[in-house]
Design a protein around this nucleic acid. Structure first.
Length: 563
RNA sequence: CGGGGUGUGGCGCAGCCCGGUAGCGCACCUGCUUUGGGAGCAGGGGGCCGGAGGUUCAAAUCCUCUCACCCCGACCA
């Protein structure tokens, strides 16, 4: 591709509305432009990156027996009503009516359509297993699009669905996907972790997420470097260090104006980990519940919601007073009538808790003695706590979710009637799995993980082109002729090359080459006239070879390194 | 949905507090010079100052409402 006639609008300055590194660089390098919040145009270079990624995805999905299909973007409400998600999903689904007033929606995922299709076309256990996949646009009215291409309202997604007769077969399909995903991300050149995840509203039998470490990530994972335990913090277990043993008797103490853990512990001269944080939540169906975590811990709302099996929200101040008779900052579990759930860390020990009397706390309180409660893992894992598997200290990292895999079970096949007859002639619901990959997130993660002050440094496999051919003296006929010949020889050798044939000053071309970040730069300039050589340089290491024009192809391969 | 911020030529910004009819850098067009890390000089084109009301002799500037976008949080199937 020739730069002079291409749409590669590079920007000298950072766009004002971009914060994340990948966002800034993808806009500056001319890969994408924003049309509206969370809605992006992919320009030629950006499109080529997506094409590279989706080509890898296709190869690996085909390799495990995937069959590519295209499912509609526009769905009738009926199938979503059948699965129950028409009501379960709120504002995040784009809804509309057709001219006849029928309810429709835009597809945010395709379990319903797959189950619908399976219900019609799959009848016998002999038809199983099936793996169907598509690479197609998804629409989700995100509450808050952000970080450029990382969280958008319209995005490309590879989604696949497995259909099996039983859970054992699902486990095999799931394992095949897990392995294929690792191959895909390895080939794309991104670093990632495979972590246990919360199946959330997808429901089902288990799930994993593929997470690319990056400061721009929205999720956090807890990782054990000793044994390999890794989980989303939404679900990660961890073993906090216990506070020193205490034997003090229960006593009420005045704590005027001390409302926060920090204030109470300072007033009493105690470490925060000797106190208990009491939080009143309201569950949608079960009503108020008092959740307890240690003073130095943070309650993870997803963990509470998962424990209760329904969504929760913090209680309003007047609800707190109504249920417990005291204001925020003075509440505790002793003598209350609402159900109490306590974090595992509170099983043993004596604690400082709110007295349910404004301005007072209780010291020396024990779970099971002074109040009754259910124990569960409720606190968010933090770095340094013990690994639940081996006890080594956990690390917590920010990550970008680039893929996920879910064992769905029969959650969609039953309501949509996707049944088969088994060998015994008995009707059974198909056991499903669903699996997603976000190509744009892979691209953004690659940029986040691989860039420098001058621009992007693309991994070879997903770079929009492999080589950036810079013609320094566009008006020097000898240089121009040599560059043309090199351009043809590179393409002939299978090295995809962007030829900067613009009549620009060298500095502009070099800056743009660094910004766009193709793995190898080939410079045709004055060195050609002086020494008969051109320069072949690695974007990543900046190592440079000077070779005669005939040696460029070999030099590009050498400089690019393995892969 | 809560909190914070920003909207002024294509991009990045100043002007707003203290009202007087819009400016800078880059980009763009023409000419000359220049050509290995975002060139110089000269000339030139381009702006409903996000939108709607209001105050005023006069509004980018003050007031009210509204829209859009960004950031933090909530949410994230």
């Amino acid at each position: 591709m020739r730069f002079a006639k291409s749409l590669i609008p590079t920007l000298r300055e950072d766009p004002a509305d971009a914060e994340a590194i990948s966002h800034r660089l993808m806009v500056r390098a001319g890969l994408v432009r924003q049309l509206a919040a969370g809605i992006y145009v992919y320009l030629p270079l950006g499109q080529r990156v997506l094409d590279k990624i989706t080509a890898i995805v296709r190869e690996e999905m085909n390799a495990i027996g995937g069959q590519e299909v295209t499912l509609p973007v526009l769905h009738p409400a009926e199938i979503w009503q059948q699965s129950g998600r028409w009501d379960a999903i709120g504002d995040e689904m784009f809804r509309l009516k057709d001219r006849n007033g029928r309810d429709m929606c835009l597809g945010m995922t395709h379990e319903e359509v797959v189950a619908w299709l399976a219900a019609r076309e799959i009848r016998s256990y002999r038809d199983l297993p099936q793996i169907w996949y598509q690479i197609q646009t998804k629409e989700r009215d995100e509450a808050r699009p952000r970080s450029g291409v990382l969280r958008t309202r319209e995005f490309l997604m590879k989604d696949s669905y497995t259909l099996d007769l039983d859970v054992a077969a699902l486990d095999r399909a799931y394992a095949a996907h897990k392995a294929a995903y690792c191959t895909i991300f390895d080939r794309c050149g991104v670093r990632y972790l495979v972590v246990e995840s919360d199946p959330g509203m997808m429901g089902g039998l288990g799930s994993h997420e593929f997470m690319a470490p990056s400061a721009a990530g929205e999720d956090e994972v807890a990782v054990c470097r000793a044994c390999g335990y890794a989980a989303n913090v939404e679900l990660a277990r961890s073993v906090p260090a216990p506070p020193p043993p205490a034997t003090e008797a229960r006593v009420e103490v005045a704590t005027p104006n001390a409302k926060t853990i920090a204030e109470v512990s300072a007033l009493l001269g105690l470490e925060p980990r000797r106190t208990v944080k009491s939080l009143l939540y309201v569950a949608a169906k079960a009503g108020p519940v008092l959740a307890l975590v240690r003073g130095d811990h943070t309650l993870h709302e997803r963990k509470l919601a998962r424990l209760l099996g329904e969504e929760v929200r913090p209680a309003h101040p007047d609800e707190v007073r109504g249920a417990l008779g005291a204001g925020l900052g003075s509440i505790g579990p002793v003598g209350v009538t609402v159900p109490v759930v306590a974090d595992e860390a509170l099983r043993a020990g004596r604690w400082v808790v709110g007295a349910n009397r404004d301005g007072y706390h209780l010291r020396g309180v024990s779970a099971g003695v002074d109040f009754e409660c259910r124990f569960a893992d409720l606190h968010a894992a933090v770095a340094g706590e013990g690994c639940p598997e081996c006890g080594a200290p956990l690390a917590v990292e920010r990550v970008i979710e680039i893929g996920n895999i879910f064992k769905l079970g029969t959650k969609y096949s039953v309501p949509l009637g996707a049944m088969v007859l088994d060998e015994a002639g008995k009707e059974r619901p198909i056991v499903m799995g669903s699996y997603g990959i976000g190509p744009a997130r892979i691209a953004a993660a690659a940029v986040e993980q691989s860039h420098d002050a001058d621009g992007i440094i693309w991994p070879w496999a997903i770079a929009p082109f492999h080589a950036h051919l810079v013609l320094v003296g566009a008006r020097d006929q000898a240089q121009a002729d040599a560059a043309e010949a090199i351009y043809r020889s590179l393409w002939a050798a299978g090295i995809e090359t962007l030829f900067d044939d613009r009549d620009e000053r060298p500095g502009v071309k070099f800056k743009d080459a660094d910004l766009v970040g193709l793995p190898v730069r080939v410079t045709v300039g004055t060195a050609l006239a002086k020494g008969g050589v051109v320069e072949v340089r690695s974007r990543r290491t900046r190592a440079e070879l000077r070779v005669p024009p005939g040696g460029v192809v070999a030099a590009v391969r050498e400089v690019a390194g393995p892969g």
